[in-house]
């Protein structure tokens, strides 16, 4: 549901960027982490509705869903979302659609551990970012 809020943040920050440069935006490349479970179609639909009232009304949204590379700071183990998916099942079951990782992906270390040494101390890029703006 909060895909709309994310889309709003993308439109307003790209619009601000474009106004500062007097640029006409053709495409926005948005990168999201797969662990956020954000719905790309809802993001795109929201972006297309919200952009109509902005200065980037002609911009197209392209979304890249990043697969995460996790790196444990305790034992050095490298792992992927697939390796910890079973740990996340209870969260998805107990919290439902608006689970904490969907809303704030940076909370991943709270709910998951390194599959090798069980440390919560691992690194992963869980940010939502505009990678590029095409003008």
């Amino acid at each position: 549901m909060h895909e709309w809020a994310i889309a709003m943040s993308v439109v307003s920050s790209v619009e601000k960027w474009a106004l500062e440069r007097n640029a006409k935006v053709k495409k926005v490349l948005l990168s999201i982490p797969s662990l956020s479970m954000l719905e790309v179609e809802i993001l795109r639909e929201a972006f297309n509705v919200i952009k109509k009232d902005s200065k980037i009304a002609d911009a197209e949204l392209e979304v890249i869903v990043r697969d995460q590379n996790f790196s444990c700071r305790a034992c050095g183990n490298k792992f992927t979302l697939k390796d910890i998916r079973s740990q996340l099942e209870p969260i998805l079951r107990d919290f439902g659609e608006e689970n904490p990782l969907h809303v704030v992906p940076a909370l991943i270390t709270t709910f998951a551990k390194c599959p090798k040494c069980s440390s919560h101390d691992f690194e992963v890029d869980s940010s939502i970012k505009v990678e590029a703006v095409e003008i």
């Binding site: 994310i6 709003m8 943040s9 307003s12 920050s13 960027w17 940010s127 970012k129 505009v130």
Partner: peptide, 10 residues
């Protein structure tokens, strides 16, 4: 560009 940070600022 970090849209969430920009959203927070605005």
């Amino acid at each position: 560009m970090n849209p969430i940070l920009e959203m927070a600022k605005s």
